[in-house]
Design a protein around this nucleic acid. Structure first.
Lengths: 218, 218
DNA sequence: ATTTAATAGTGTAAAAAATACACATTATAT
DNA sequence: ATATAATGTGTATTTTTTACACTATTAAAT
C-alpha cells in the first residue's frame, strides 16, 4: 500500500514584458480536452523530482530546468474520481530556450501552449488556485531567490531584469532607483558587451555572479 | 486507486528562551520505539488539514492551533516499506497552553515529550531533515508571519518577544534597536498592565493588533 | 532601613538604504 | 540631417539601521 500521487508543474517564462505559463490540453478523463498544468502520476520507482523533470521535459523539450516545490494539494474534492494528492512545482525557463522547441505530444496531453498569466482559459481541477499561489510565492521570494535570472538569458540588460521584477511584483519601478539598488547588491557582473539587433541605442549586458549571489542568500 | 499518504507535524513551542519540539515515541513498526514527529495516515474521507489538526490534538490536547504547510516529502527510500509520501506541517503552540496537558496516548504513539530543538534524540524516517527545513523556514519568514506571536501568550513583554526572535534567528539582538523597530511597525498595542510574580521590576505587557498586522502582511 | 540582585526602560549620533524626480546620450531608420 | 526610441545617469531628502551605556524599579536578603 504505497503512495500514489501526481505532480503538477507551473512552468513560467517571460516574453515581451509578460509572464507566460505553459498549459497542456488534456487527452484523458477527467477534464479531457481542458487546459491544465502539465502534470501526471509519479511512477512507482521514480523520485518525485525526477517525475517533475520528466513532465517538464515532455512539455517543453528542456532538461535541467529550475524547480522549486510549491505545495501539496490534497482536497478530497479536487479530483472528481476521488482524492488524488498532487505536489505542485514551480519551474522557470528562458523564453529563448523554449521558443523554437517543437511541442511534444504524449498520450496524456494533446498539445502544449503558452498563455499570458493574465488571460487564461478555464483550468482543470484546482489548477487555477495552484497558479495563483505560485504567483504569490514568486512575488514573496523574488528578492531572495534566483528566479528573475532563471527567466533571463545568461547575458541580459538591466531593463530586461527590471521588466521581470515589474511583472512579478505587479508594480512599476523607478529606473534609476532600481539600477542603483540592484547594482549595489554586488552580484551582477557588468560586461563589455552590448545588445545587438535593436534600432536604438544598444544597452549594456550584465550577467549574474552566482557565487556572490549564493554567498548572500545561502 | 486513491492517494494514500501521511502528515507529520513539527509542533514547536517556546519556553525559557529555548524552542522546543514535541516528539512522540512510536508504537508501530517501522521505527517502533523511536522518537518521531507526531504524524499518521490521513483517513480516506478526511481533509489533510483536519488530519493534521487531529494528530496535533492527539499529541498536545489542543484544538485550533496555528498551522502552515511546510512541504511534501516523497523520497523512495524515506520509508523502509516503500515510498510513503508525507506532507509536513509546522504548528506553533503556546507553552502556557500545553504545559499542564496530560500527554495523551494513542495506538500509534506511546508518549509525547518536549525536547530542546538543539538537543534531540535520533529521529525516525527523514524527520530530522523535516525539522531542519522547518527551522530554516521559520527564520526566513519570521518578519512576515505571525509566528512569533503564536508562541507567546496573548499579553507578553517585549523581552519575551525578543527572545523568540533570537531563538529563531540564532543571533542576539540589541534591546534598544529591537524595541524601536518592532514598536515602529505599529502593530503592537501597549497595555496598562504589567508582569506579575517577578522579583524584579515588572515589565509592561503588550498585545498584537491582528488587524493592523494583517493590513501590513496580507 | 539599607543593600543587593535582577531586569526594565530609555536617546542620540552616524551610516546606510530608500525614495522622488528630469534630462542629455546614443544608435538606427528615414 | 532629422526623427525616433530607448539608454544611462545624480542629487537632495527621508527613512531605516546600527552602535552604544546608563538610570529606574522591584523584591528579596541582610
Amino acid at each position: 500500500m504505497l503512495s500514489f500521487f501526481t505532480v503538477d508543474c507551473v512552468i513560467l517564462t517571460f516574453h515581451e514584458g509578460i509572464l507566460k505559463i505553459l498549459l497542456t490540453e488534456r487527452n484523458e478523463y477527467p477534464y479531457k480536452d481542458w487546459w491544465a498544468l502539465p502534470g501526471y502520476f509519479v511512477d512507482k520507482g521514480e523520485e518525485m523530482e525526477d517525475a517533475v523533470k520528466r513532465i517538464a521535459y515532455e512539455s517543453t523539450g528542456l532538461k535541467d530546468i529550475y524547480l522549486e516545490q510549491l505545495a501539496a494539494f490534497a482536497g478530497i474534492k479536487r479530483h472528481p474520481e476521488g482524492r488524488i494528492l498532487t505536489v505542485a512545482y514551480i519551474a522557470l525557463v528562458r523564453y529563448d530556450d523554449v521558443k523554437n522547441k517543437i511541442k511534444p505530444v504524449t498520450n496524456y496531453m494533446r498539445q502544449a501552449k503558452w498563455f499570458d498569466v493574465n488571460s487564461l482559459p478555464e483550468l482543470a481541477f484546482d489548477h487555477k488556485q495552484i497558479l495563483n499561489l505560485s504567483l504569490i510565492n514568486l512575488k514573496k521570494n523574488i528578492n531572495f531567490s534566483m528566479s528573475p535570472f532563471e527567466l533571463l538569458p545568461e547575458k541580459f540588460t538591466l531593463t530586461q531584469l527590471q521588466q521581470i521584477y515589474e511583472a512579478i511584483l505587479l508594480e512599476p519601478l523607478d529606473k534609476r532607483n532600481f539600477r542603483k539598488k540592484i547594482l549595489n547588491l554586488g552580484y551582477l557582473k557588468e560586461l563589455e558587451e552590448f545588445q545587438t539587433g535593436v534600432s536604438y541605442r544598444a544597452a549594456r549586458l550584465y550577467k549574474l555572479d552566482k557565487k556572490k549571489f549564493q554567498k548572500l542568500f545561502p
